[in-house]
Write a protein that binds this DNA or RNA. Structure first.
Lengths: 210, 210
DNA sequence: GCACAGTCGACCAGAGTGGTCAATTTTTCA
DNA sequence: TGAAAAATTGACCACTCTGGTCGACTGTGC
């Protein structure tokens, strides 16, 4: 096949992908504007429809691309041999952050995909299945093969894990909100890892045995 | 003053307010559609512009109304004599849920107000000041006059409080997502309070002294 | 000099925008 | 009862923006 988009300079291609994901994530499929995308991406209107024939095919391309990213750069990377729940969540948070640095709008884009009512959009069942599978697998990678003996003896371990997950989500949301303005590509996250580990230490102190 | 909107049947008036808040919360000021609002509210197009002269004045009315609601039905209700942080958060969560049941889109509406860039909208400084004050006061009502001696002796109480706040936010987000489809007006929340209290008990066990 | 992939943006018909207003119904009250 | 007043409607307006097209143009390779 001779796909002009594949032959594009990788930096430019990645930028177009990022811009388009941001647009769809912000406005949903129906209200996303191809005019804004080409303007922001710095390409002529014609090019977008030269690369992708329609708005719908652009969207489906992004969906496929995004799912592949999450599958390979996130889910497949999680080491289930880590049975300490907090360490497991730490691992997951790290992978998530790395993925977020590479594709800041990927999570929001996929997040709004099933959420917003599927306006007249014909999503292939293969993609829908991949999405469903991703949700389930993500859940399993969090809670499978966890050593519950680490938790305090008289504590409800399921509720404890849920609370820890919410805590870490809270930290991540706070962090991304705080860094919203900054340039993620050039950002050094190491100072934030220190802060994160301090929170993890408190969590350990709170939920684990001495 | 003879304001036709004030003279409306309270149920109808409340419904129009709710519909409009939902529209602005979903799309932001610029992309919100007055056509969709009147259609959803079940009134003729002319009425909206009879009650409020312009889209902007409708928005400003909702802003003022929403701020008043939060001030009186939420902030003013918080009892600072409760010095137990978890009990304080429990109290806040309860007030928040009651307000949410009455105005399901109020929080989202006000949340997107400062977030989205203020597109060409001329918001009076009085309203901006009230909004700023609300943020600050909300923060104070959470953390002021808290008895830190309840936390485990060797624990960073600030981080612990932050983690508890994130945990409770997580629970609330999960709950509102779970109940999204259901009808809030006729919903009985009491069974969910049981579940909530169980989580609070685990939090207490985790962060407080024996 | 010619073929051809890449690139652009003016342009299209159609949909949707906030807002208006003449016409109609409903309410008020002497 | 009847007329003045208030409430309500939706067709309509000028305008903006939509996804998508296409003829013109550029650069490259041979």
């Amino acid at each position: 096949m001779d796909d002009p988009f594949k032959k594009l300079d990788p930096k430019k291609r990645a930028y177009i992908i990022e811009v388009a994901m941001k647009e769809f994530a912000s406005y949903g499929y129906a209200d996303a504007s191809t005019n804004r995308i080409v303007k922001e991406a710095g390409i002529g209107k014609g090019m977008l429809f030269y690369y992708f024939k329609t708005k719908e095919q652009l969207y489906l391309y992004l969906l496929d691309y995004g799912l592949t990213q999450i599958e390979t750069a996130f889910l497949d990377q999680i080491d289930l041999s880590v049975t300490d729940f907090i360490k497991r969540m730490q691992q997951i948070a790290k992978k998530k952050m790395i993925l977020f640095k590479a594709h800041p709008h990927l999570m929001a884009f996929l997040g709004t995909f099933m959420l917003k009512e599927n306006q007249q959009l014909n999503v292939p069942t293969t993609i829908q299945e991949r999405y469903q599978k991703l949700i389930i697998e993500g859940y399993q990678k969090m809670y499978q093969q966890i050593d519950r003996s680490l938790f305090k003896a008289d504590m409800d371990a399921d509720k404890a894990m849920q609370l820890i997950e919410w805590s870490i989500n809270g930290y991540q949301q706070m962090l991304t909100a705080r860094l919203k303005a900054e340039d993620f590509a050039t950002l050094d996250l190491s100072s934030y890892w220190d802060e994160f580990y301090q929170y993890l230490a408190v969590l350990k102190q709170a939920y684990y045995k001495e």
